[in-house]
């Protein structure tokens, strides 16, 4: 959890609150250090899921959730990974759409979960066809 990355992220969401960026405020807080905004896990590297090749274009973010045991602390190490937890298809006016469910995890060095997040990614008919033809 790099201080600079947290600051850059806080600035990008227009939330340069001292609890995220001011060292004194962090030290004097109940956490003893600065914390990160709840959507900061967007920044983490969750590795690669073998066989999953999603394009970086043409996907729609449908839903997103975060569940925390506690806030993320600046300076701590977090171990991240993600899983595909489901896939379904629905027919609509735009053709058949795919709904991909991904779950991501962040653990402390002892393996305790700090946060989990879930994403629903909607794959349009056009992109779905392209993926199948590959």
């Amino acid at each position: 959890m790099e201080r600079g990355a947290v600051k850059k992220f806080a600035e990008a969401i227009g939330d340069l609150h001292p609890i995220y960026v001011d060292e004194e405020t962090g030290k004097n807080s109940r956490f003893g250090t600065n914390i990160a905004p709840p959507t900061f896990p967007r920044v983490f590297d969750y590795g690669v899921i073998e066989g999953l090749h999603l394009p970086n274009k043409g996907l729609i973010h449908g839903e997103q959730s975060f569940h925390y045991k506690r806030p993320l602390l600046v300076g701590e190490d977090i171990f991240c990974y993600s899983e595909v937890t489901g896939y379904s298809e629905k027919s609509g006016t735009q053709g058949k759409m795919g709904f991909l469910l991904l779950q991501s995890f962040g653990e402390d060095p002892s393996g305790q979960i700090i946060f989990t997040s879930k994403s629903t990614v909607i794959i349009s008919e056009a992109v779905r066809r392209e993926l199948i033809s590959q």
């Binding site: 969401i13 959730s65 925390y68 506690r70 806030p71």
Partner: peptide, 17 residues
């Protein structure tokens, strides 16, 4: 999420959907 930032001493965001 920033509507909740100033309340960090009272608690934290457990779930955000």
């Amino acid at each position: 999420s920033k509507l909740f930032t100033s309340f960090y001493e009272e608690g934290y965001m457990e779930d955000y959907l």
